[in-house]
Amino acid sequence: MHDRRRVLQWATFARSWWIFDANHQCPFQSANRLCLFLEGKHKPIYHPLSDCGDHVIVINTKHIAMPDRFWRAWRHFHHTQYAGGFQVQRAWQVHREDPTKILKKQIYSTLTGNLLRKGLMARLHLFPEEDVPEGMLRNVSNQIRQVMPVPKTLEDYPIEERESFPRVFEWPEEYVVKDGKEFERQKEYLDEDLSLSKLQ
């Protein structure tokens, strides 16, 4: 084989590394897209018998956005195989214990259930924040497009723009404005007082 053709062959079948930013992304839609890259279905040379999947690094899994009321309604089940060993956890409880678990489980269940799945999962690298090891980051050659646009928060707008925005009315001086942390306080209160059995 000619030298150039030989290198083409290597380049075609080389395992490349991708990075995906899960900030404000739906885990269900993200899992569908990430599975394509893990299985190699993003390449025109794909064949179910040739192991042509890629490595995927996912950052900011702590900041995923569940749709609708799924933080409270989506449940993770576990059974220890002993009598009375059934456990249920809500998404927000699972996410607080391990910020990568929801996305990991979702990708695991989206992949086809065969003997390749364990190997494919080993090529998935999840990080709750952006602190990826430098050696891993050096391999990355491309970025996976996000599944939905990241919404802008109030803090993203400059102060001048915020204050120049037309107002219907202004708060009276003695009015106490909410600081937006009521839900977190409520969550802590729930964790202390309510056991898991009550939530079921």
Binding site: K41, H42, K43, P44, I45, Y46, H47, P48
Partner: peptide, 13 residues
């Protein structure tokens, strides 16, 4: 089915 999968991948590139 295989051709469709490959072509979807190739077009999406």
């Amino acid at each position: 089915e295989l051709y469709n999968l490959r072509l979807e991948a190739a077009a999406e590139e």
